[in-house]
Write a protein that binds this DNA or RNA. Structure first.
Length: 492
RNA sequence: GGUUCCUUCGUCUAACGGUUAGGACGGGAGAUUCUCAGUCUCUAAAUAGGGGUUCGAUUCCCCUAGGAACUACCA
């Protein structure tokens, strides 16, 4: 039997870490087993649906390099793959259950349901959920309600006796007493749309899905789905519930833990390969020691055995580390093009960049590459090249262990050494040695000489290496900034 | 509350009954160095607790404790 798996998100929000992790596991499992990866859009919630979410789904998968074999846009033999386009199918199957007495019309108003819930809460009843008020309506009662124009929902009749078991590849057998299953859930809403349970079961069957890999939050509805498959007389697919992705506090990862939308990570300057690598390592491992995986590696080496049972905390710091690693492994040309949009957005260069600016960006990449955690770090690192905002507070120029007089001397004589040296083509090593001996002469640390010069040139005590900074800035502007700093120290 | 699931360093994890319980991130220390990074080296840090089974339990079983998810005309 060929493996067929699917990722079936609901376009009601941006793709987040947890969702994309599910997509990745499905995708890799399919690839590693020569199977098919299907994308299905579960847009049955009309109230929360948004076009933006759908676009985000496509662009996020595209950014990660995940292609689906069947689904929207690409089509396939079991389409359509967007549930709102399968409206009639669900109606038909729901009606079939009604005809067979396995489901029934319910005319209860939202108000009545609310009231029932309230009473159950107050009485601390062990039984929660629908009270099966409409479970045994006569034909004439149904006709009467319908003639009043009340739009019914269709509820699935859950047995009150017995228990239902399903097998999970990771978790083993999971059994639930039928009386503990949410009583008679709605499978077709009053607007004619199916709920998740119905649509999901029908589509997974019709699309010949062999393995259902989804987050563990779905475990409780596993038995209900099994009951649904049985009601239709269909074979139950294999289940594989994925460990949840948690935040630092052990709760389901959500916005309050930080960014969760993949789009946000992308905007901040995370590389797709870093996200892909780290995210698949949350809840999965190959051998406990291999940590770098390319998409191609995973397409070959992903195994279901490596998926864990227990939930995993998403570690933003480790993602940062992965991203830094991938940035450093990135070719300079590619990095230049990746970094360009950030410089454009900061208003540092034109959109598109001029030829000179393109050249500058190329030169910026090598020194900046070692220092970036995310691509957006390029902005603060290179701001001194594009903005001239001199530091006027003299104390900033003075390094630890030096005083104002020493800093002034270091600045004046250091500038001389630096500028004349560079103008004469003296090599950097020699200039550096001269600056070091100047420090010795002034009785201060080497940094006592470098810091005032650095602040003068880059307007910061933290910067790229001095000679790199000067090379990028150009000698003329460097000299100008040094002169200005010297003037600052000569005042009063 | 009810139901179900989970439990190895702070975090992600390895160890298919026998290891000085391994690796990585993060932390700490050091080296390199003009700052910051980066890189390299070293280091602290865990089997939730209690019972069994066994010659021997991280590993198998039970109990306790803790955590999580679900409990919608949302998925």
């Amino acid at each position: 039997m060929d493996v067929r798996v699917r990722y079936a998100p609901s376009p009601t929000g941006l793709q987040h870490i947890g969702g994309i992790r599910t997509a990745l596991f499905n995708y890799f499992f399919a690839r590693a087993n020569g199977g098919k990866f299907i994308l299905r859009v579960e847009d049955t919630d009309r109230e929360r649906y948004s076009d933006e979410s759908l676009e985000d789904l496509y662009s996020t998968l595209d950014w990660l390099g995940i292609k689906w074999d069947e689904g929207p846009v690409v089509g396939g033999p079991y389409g359509p793959y967007i549930q709102s386009e399968r409206f009639d199918i669900y109606r038909e199957y729901a009606q079939r259950l009604v005809d067979e007495g396995k489901a029934y019309y319910c005319f209860c108003s939202p108000e009545r349901l609310e009231e029932v819930r309230k009473q159950q809460a107050e009485s601390k009843s062990e039984y929660q959920g629908y009270d099966r008020h409409c479970a045994h309506l006569s034909d004439s009662e149904i006709k009467e309600y319908l003639s009043q124009g009340i739009k019914p929902v269709i509820r699935f009749r859950v047995p009150t006796e017995g228990k239902t078991t399903f097998h999970d590849i990771i978790m083993g057998d999971i059994t639930r007493r039928n009386r503990d299953i949410s009583p008679d859930p709605v499978i077709l809403k009053s607007d004619g749309f199916p709920t998740y349970h119905l649509a999901n079961v029908i589509d997974d069957h019709l699309m010949h899905i062999t393995h259902i890999m989804r987050a563990q939050e779905w475990i409780p509805s596993g038995p209900l789905h099994v009951l649904l498959y049985q009601a239709f007389g269909w074979e139950v697919p294999q289940y594989c519930h994925l460990p949840m992705v948690m935040g630092k506090d052990g709760q389901k990862l959500s916005k309050r833990h930080g960014s969760t939308a993949v789009r946000d990570f992308r905007a901040k300057g995370y590389l797709p390969e870093a996200i892909l690598n780290y995210v698949t390592l949350v809840g999965w491992s190959l051998d406990g020691s291999t940590e770098f995986f390319s998409r191609e590696d995973l397409e070959k080496r992903f195994t279901m055995e490596g998926i864990h049972k227990s939930p995993a905390v998403f570690d933003y710091k480790k993602l940062d580390w992965f991203n830094g690693q991938y940035i450093r492994a990135c070719g300079n040309d590619r990095l230049a093009s990746l970094v360009t949009p950030y410089l454009e957005e900061a208003g540092f260069i034109h959109t598109p960049p001029t030829a000179d600016e393109e050249k500058l960006v190329e030169d910026i990449v090598p020194p900046v590459k070692e220092r970036m955690k995310t691509l957006s770090d390029v902005v603060p690192l290179t701001a001194f090249l594009f903005r001239d905002e001199p530091v006027t507070d003299r104390s900033v120029y003075i390094a630890k262990g030096a005083d104002e007089a020493a800093a002034a001397k270091a600045l004046i004589r250091g500038s001389e050494i630096l500028i004349s040296g560079l103008r004469n083509g003296t090599d950097e090593k020699s200039i550096e040695e001269s600056l070091s001996s100047l420090a010795a002469e002034l009785g201060i640390k080497v940094n006592g000489v470098f810091q005032p010069i650095r602040v003068a040139i880059t307007a910061s005590t933290v910067s790229l290496p001095l000679f790199d900074s000067i090379r990028l800035l150009g000698l003329d502007r460097t000299e100008e900034r040094l002169r200005r700093a010297i003037k600052l120290f000569k005042e009063n």
